[in-house]
Design a protein around this nucleic acid. Structure first.
Length: 260
DNA sequence: ATGGTAGGCGTCCTA
């Protein structure tokens, strides 16, 4: 089963390149982030025509996550526990049935956290702690789990073309890196890192000319539970998507293949 | 060291 994550930066603005990528890459499951629309505005018919079930947790103007699946979807759960006042649409979970078992997947859009320091950074850390607690609970079931999305965290120096340029940025603060490591320390594995440890591979380039200079960062991650890691066969970044359309997202898709 | 772009239904905010 091929499982991908992609921050599209508005699903309406990205509909044509998204359909083209789906046809070429043919993933079974796709976690989308920053769809920037309410549920009613999601162009589900276009994806259904390619054979995908659409599960949407939308929000007006900002954030918003979704899960597309060619396989049966059940046990759909939006939102993270721990803060009833948090109305950002940043988390959506579902169970997907494959040919050889099931996998629980989550589409994650972690807060950006800039400017640092400040209340937005505090919100980022609090949100990531809520994610950690939830990730911990999921391990008790000892099932394959894939927590994927835009974590807005650069894990290490080798995940940025110019690490020094990010020293004052929320994405590269020691507390942000520690929050990601705490989730990994529960027993989750960064799938792309596990198969491509060398660094220098990026998933995001800003719109300020960074693509042309390959001034990128790796901030979109798929974290695998031990049972998912056991089934991991491949991981990749579809970098070519950035150059394949006139109006690309600032992120590109990242994917894994699991024998499920 | 700075500021550059993109998207959204609001004249700025978020990224």
């Amino acid at each position: 089963m091929k499982i991908a994550t992609w921050n599209v930066n508005s699903i309406k603005a990205r509909l044509e390149p998204a359909l083209a990528w789906l046809k070429a890459a043919d993933p079974d499951v796709v976690a989308l982030q920053e769809i920037k629309t309410v549920d009613e505005g999601f162009p589900r018919e276009a994806f259904e025509s390619l054979g995908y079930n659409c599960t949407v947790h939308g929000q007006k103007s900002y954030n918003g996550v979704a899960i597309l699946s060619k396989r049966p979807v059940e046990d759909v759960t939006p939102r993270l526990h721990g803060d009833d006042a948090d109305d950002h649409a940043r988390y959506l979970e579902a169970v997907i049935t494959g040919d050889h078992g099931t996998v629980r997947v989550a589409s994650i859009y972690a807060p950006n956290g800039n400017p640092f320091p400040g209340p937005k950074f505090d919100y980022k850390l609090a949100w990531l702690e809520r994610l950690r607690r939830h990730a911990q609970k999921l391990l008790a079931d000892e099932e394959p789990v894939v927590l994927m999305g835009d974590y807005n965290i650069i894990p290490e120096d080798k995940d940025a073309d110019r690490p020094k340029a990010w020293l004052k940025d929320a994405l590269f603060q020691p507390q942000s890196k520690a929050a990601l490591r705490r989730i990994e320390n529960l027993g989750y594995t960064d799938a792309y890192r596990a198969l491509h440890p060398e660094g220098g591979h990026y998933t995001f380039w800003d719109y300020f000319g960074s693509w042309e200079r390959n001034n990128g960062i790796r901030i979109d991650h798929l974290l695998l539970s031990p049972q998912a890691l056991d089934r991991l066969t491949k991981a990749g970044i579809d970098k070519e998507v950035r150059g394949a359309s006139e109006k690309p997202s600032d992120h590109v898709p990242v994917w894994v293949e699991l024998s499920i």
